[in-house]
Amino acid sequence: MTDQDEQDDHRSRQFPVREDMVFQHKVWRFERVGWYVLVLLVILTLLGLFSRGPLSDRELYSSDGSVGVEYQAFHRNGSANAMTIRLKGQPNAVLEVELGGDWLEGFEVQALQPPPMRSAGAGQGMTLWVQADERGQASLYLSLLGEGFGTYHSRIATPGGATVSFNQFIFP
């Protein structure tokens, strides 16, 4: 394309319609940049920015390894995600774990498996007692339905002093 043609493209015509090519070029630039943003959003979604993906899958263990948790850092309002709590203690013992923080205000616990032997309220959270197997391990599987919006803090602790704490974000 020659410079002459380039000039011609940018000149605003007054007939048969009144054009504003300066504005039109801004619109086209907006469309182009917008397209890049859409592609970026698709890639981020695939990576799990809006839950379920490498960016969102998290795994945490306490320093002595007696409490561990697998969770999603990002949730969406109205969708359910899994959370797994792993406990390690004496063989065949009853293990106590406290789920604290304000997370129960943002999440509804839809399922909790296996059912704990006993449970009790503990401040904002709750305390659960679960039976460990012969290797001293116990796992709790939770299904969490995101109901709030924003950041919620969770803290999982055992009486032995092992603690993991983390934040979860719920998108609207």
Binding site: M1, D5, E6, D8, D9, D20, F23, Q24, W28
Partner: peptide, 24 residues
């Protein structure tokens, strides 16, 4: 103009305005 945009000429006297056509 922001919501509806404006019209754009893409053929003038039998000649295509290629740059505009590509942008559109």
């Amino acid at each position: 103009r922001l919501i509806d945009g404006g019209p754009t000429i893409i053929v003038e006297d039998g000649k295509i305005l290629r740059g505009r056509m590509r942008h559109a």
